[in-house]
Design a protein around this nucleic acid. Structure first.
Lengths: 201, 201
DNA sequence: AAATTAACTTGACGCTGTAAAGATTGTATG
DNA sequence: CATACAATCTTTACAGCGTCAAGTTAATTT
C-alpha cells in the first residue's frame, strides 16, 4: 500500500528522471534499478511503465537531461570567455571540469548512451549532439581567425575533441591514480601541442 | 543433470575466463552473466564459485587477460617499427586499432575495470598497467632523442596518451557516426599537433 | 583403506526487468 | 449530472540474475 495525498502523482515522469539522475550521480549506474527509482518517488515498482516503455527509455531521458546540462556549461564558458584569445582552452577546461564534478556522468553518457553523436560535419546540425556542435562552432571560428588551412579544419576539430575527451575519460576513472590536479594541469597538456589557434589558458 | 566425460572439469577456471571474454566481445558486457558463462562451459550455475569469489573477480581476471593481449599488441608494434622515426605514431595507431577490432573491450577495460592505472610516474613500474608503461617508455626515449625539454616530459606523455585514448574511445562508441575510416585518419589527427618528437605516420 | 580436501551440483533466497490484469482518478461526452 | 473512456497507478506473477548453504563426487593425502 503506497501512501500519497492523491492516487495520481502528476509529475511522476519528471521526478523519475530527476531522482534517477540523483541516484546515478551518487551511487553510479551499476546499482541503479527501476524499482529503486520508483521507490524513491514513492510509487509502486511498475509505475514507471506508464511513462517509459522500459528501463532503457528512462536512462535515455536521463542522458538527454545531463547532455543539456553539459551543453549549457560549455555555452556559459563561451559567454564568459568568448572574446578572450584562449576561449578554446577554457572550453576544454570546462569540458573536463563538468565530468570531474560528476564522475559518474562520463561513462553514463559515453558508454551507455543511445544519444547519437555525429562527427561527420553533416548539415543536420540542429539535431546533433549539442556539446559537439558548440565546440565545433567555436573551434572553426578560431581557425578562420588564425588563417588555419581550411582543408585541415575537420581533422583539427576531431583531434582536439578527442584530446579533451580523453583527458576527461582518464580524469574520471576511479582506478586511475594521478597525483596532480587534473583541472590545473589542463593548460599544461594543451601546451604540449603547438596549435596556432590554440592559446594556453 | 550436467553431462561431461568426468565429474571434474580440470581446466574450468581458464575456460571460464576464455568463454567469458568471448561472450563479452560478441554480445557485450550488458548481457553478460555468470550463469551464461557457466552454461557455455557445460557446468552448473554455481560452479564458478569454486574458482572465483564472485562475478567481479571473474570479470577482473578477464580484464587482466585482455590487458595482457593489448600490451602485447603495443610491444609488437615497437618491435616492428622501433627504429623508424614515426614509431610513436604507429603505436598510437596500434592502440586505436586494437579497440576498433574489439569494440566491446574499450568500455569493458576502461569503465568497468578494477585494474589500476598509475599515471603518476611513480617508481613501481613493474606492477603498473603495462600498456601505459610501454607507451611511456617509448615516448620518453623519443623526447630524449629530440632534446625535448625535460620538465615537460610528464605532461607530454599524459597529453599524448589522453589524445590517443580519446580517439579510441570515440572510435569504439556505437552511437558515434563518423563517415571516415578511423584507422586511416589517425595520422591526420596526429598531424594537427606539431610535436617535435611526433612524426606523422 | 580411510580420511581429508577440492570441485562440482542442487536448491533456495532476494533482487531485478517486465508483462498482464485490476483499481483509481481525471476528462470528455451525452 | 451521469456515463463512458482514457490515463495513471497498483498488484500479482514470472523468468533470469548473483549468491549462499548443503549435499555429492572425485582426487589427494595419510
Amino acid at each position: 500500500m503506497i501512501e500519497r495525498e492523491s492516487y495520481h502523482h502528476k509529475n511522476l515522469k519528471n521526478q523519475l528522471i530527476d531522482k534517477g539522475i540523483e541516484l546515478v550521480s551518487t551511487e553510479g549506474l551499476k546499482s541503479f534499478s527501476l524499482r529503486k527509482v520508483a521507490a524513491a518517488c514513492g510509487v509502486s515498482h511498475a509505475a514507471p511503465y506508464s511513462h517509459f516503455q522500459n528501463k532503457d527509455e528512462l536512462l535515455n531521458a536521463m542522458q538527454c537531461h545531463i547532455t543539456a546540462e553539459f551543453s549549457k556549461a560549455l555555452e556559459d564558458t563561451i559567454t564568459a570567455y568568448g572574446d578572450s584569445a584562449d576561449v578554446l582552452a577554457h572550453l576544454g577546461k570546462a569540458y573536463v571540469v563538468f565530468f570531474i564534478d560528476n564522475p559518474h556522468y562520463f561513462s553514463f553518457l559515453y558508454t551507455q548512451s543511445t544519444v547519437q553523436i555525429d562527427l561527420s560535419f553533416s548539415d543536420d546540425v540542429g539535431h546533433n549532439y549539442a556539446p559537439f556542435e558548440t565546440f565545433k562552432g567555436l573551434a572553426l571560428a578560431l581557425m578562420e581567425k588564425a588563417a588555419y588551412p581550411k582543408e585541415k579544419n575537420k581533422d583539427a576539430v576531431i583531434a582536439l575533441w578527442s584530446f579533451i575527451h580523453g583527458i576527461a575519460s582518464l580524469a574520471t576513472m576511479k582506478n586511475v591514480r594521478y597525483d596532480e590536479n587534473w583541472e590545473e594541469k589542463i593548460s599544461d597538456f594543451i601546451g604540449v601541442f603547438n596549435c596556432p589557434f590554440l592559446s594556453a589558458i
